[in-house]
Design a protein around this nucleic acid. Structure first.
Lengths: 219, 219, 219, 219
DNA sequence: GATGAATGAGCCTTCATTCAT
DNA sequence: CATGAATGAAGGCTCATTCAT
């Protein structure tokens, strides 16, 4: 193949518009694998198919790259969840299930899965970024879930509980699974049975929060 | 020499005084704050009140220090939990509550709290250590909790559920709280309301898993 | 093509437009400000209103640009001084004054003022260039001034002195003023009183070199 | 020699007290040779007989090293000149000659000779340092010389002149010689005839400034 | 001819590790 | 035992240079 052209492997191809995304994506993988400090920009560059210098055309520093990564990749997911809750028609219990599964679909099964782990690990090294993430992701996520629970309580579906705490408890198994599954992937040859995990969480949680009179969760 | 003891090659050379423990303790703080790669041995040394060189009298390398830290500090906690479960007399529900609260007391409120976070963050960089931790801490912890749940099911207290998954779900809110609380401490001026969190988890979880006929959890 | 001209390999490729001159001019400013090594071609390009790549259309390298700069810009000044001396009619004393003032007008008050400073600073890094500059500028300049002094001695205007040394001493206050004024411009809010400096130099020097019988310099 | 010891070339020798001076001295040579930006710390280190890392035990950065170099090495010379002038007994003319020769002995013939050249070249890159140097070296130097001239005028030895300007003119041939001699050393196989240069400067200058009635300078 | 995205060698700087004291 | 001066490999970042457009 390529018999008519002598030229092979041009040193580079002009990709100005696509570059930042490619680099961010590579950075996400690399940082998630090794953490911020242990990641070499050389690694990021290689994964992105460019050289070290190119990264500096788009980001001021390793730190700036990290910050851009967090800021630009995760917020949209929250917004999507909020939109879903706003437009959802149905019981709180169904919305709860929907949100849980959606979170897994959008975060747990995409490369975004790495962001929470990364943020937890590096929060102390990037205080302002941690604050941003906490406000724009964590708190918004909890508020979103709290809204659902409140809806359920008002509708008589759910028992009265401390809604913010209950919201955290609804999310924390997801968060933790996301993190642990990545961290210990190599230690679980059997894999992580996501389906059972989600099903059981939804089942136990809805059973736990349902008002006594309410029909049993998951018919 | 050393004719009477079978122990050879201790993980670190013991001295009469407490140096190694002081260093491990300092290392735990430092690593937890910044992560493994971003922590300077100088920091560890300063926190321990010694100089960099001294660390090398007791540990072969930064990596060895990290490994010793994980290995030496966390396993005893699991053993303690196992002992508690073995000797506990009472309902599965009470044992569940007891274990949850004990975990928080022994891990969540001591400096051990940092180990899980640290291990999650560094698992990919220390595969053998991750395997050790996963087997000796994670799996044992899950098995411990699974035993409790099985006990409850057998006793008719709990609904029949996938016990290993249910065990993970019992622990994950604790794990996540431990990690997130540390990571975002600076972002939560109001603090983290541990009491509500634990109470609500226990309440929801026991409600969720209790067999229909069983009396409601927490009178 | 090019059959009628013997010249091959011009120092830089000429175009109809003024690009090369603009670049040289920008380079002079930039190099003078920060020195050769500390100057970025990006700076030169910006000052010249082009992009980095364009510079390479006219100059082979940063070094070639620097060399062209020195070679192209300073030699003409010397030639002008030599011409002046050749055609001057009048006393050696008047010619001396004329040359001093002319040097200041042509070098001290134009952007050429930067060349000597630059050359001094970079001589060790560009030995061949230094040799060229030394021969074509320094030595020629000294010879020019030495001729004037010799003329004065022969005419009985000046005392017999070591003419080459005296020539250096005639120039050195000018050279030094040119360099120091640039370097410490920001430190002299009062400015540098050129008029007094030149007047006093001429006065002292002519007083110093005049033959005893000669009428006092500067009536 | 050294037949009884197997050990050769210890990796290093503890020199804490001597190190900073050794490094400064090496830095002076290196910077003087190539300028600040073109000098590699590796060079400085090699000249000082240490490795790159060692420099950072004593200086925060390349820039800090440069600043320390200027600040710590040149000021004492000025102070020495001032002391000389204060205690000198004799004519202004003799003091002038003494100061000129002393300057050459202390600066022109030691490694300090490089400082003025270096400072001129880098002044624009280190504005605060340039200010410091200008105030503490240049201005103080001029004031010192101005005092001598004033003394001569008051004593009737010298003609009335603008003393500050005359002071600059007294120094500038020295400054320039110091700089040019270094820069063009390789271009002057014949060398630079310091003796003639100084003698002639003193002769011309004193002739130039002497009051008419005063006996001719340099019998 | 001009552009500017991309390259990659090179340098400053850091820090785990060593070892003379 | 403990120290801390010194090391040197490694990595972030810069910038002269190239070349597809």
């Amino acid at each position: 193949m390529r018999t008519l052209t002598k030229r092979v492997k041009p040193r580079w191809r002009r990709r100005k518009n696509a570059r930042p995304e490619e680099i961010l994506s590579a950075a996400l993988e690399a940082f998630a694998d090794r953490g911020f400090a242990a990641t070499k920009l050389e690694d990021v560059a290689r994964r992105a198919g460019v050289t070290k210098g190119t990264i500096y055309l788009y980001f001021d520093s390793k730190e700036a790259l990290f910050k851009a990564l967090i800021r630009e990749t995760i917020v949209p997911v929250i917004a999507q969840g909020e939109a879903l809750a706003r437009t959802f028609v149905g019981s709180a219990r169904d919305l709860f299930e929907r949100l849980v599964r959606e979170y897994w679909r959008l975060v747990g099964e995409t490369s975004l899965v790495n962001i929470p782990k990364l943020m937890m690990a590096e929060a102390r090294n990037f205080p302002e970024l941690a604050r941003f993430y906490y406000e724009e992701v964590v708190v918004r996520g909890h508020r979103l879930m709290a809204g659902v629970i409140e809806r359920g309580i008002k509708a008589g579906e759910f028992r009265p509980v401390n809604v913010m705490v209950a919201a955290k408890l609804a999310m924390s198994p997801l968060m933790h699974a996301v993190i642990a599954r990545k961290a210990f992937a190599a230690c679980m040859p059997e894999g992580f049975d996501v389906a059972s995990y989600l099903d059981t969480h939804i089942d136990l949680y809805l059973h736990g929060i349902s008002a006594p009179s309410s029909t049993s969760a998951r018919a």
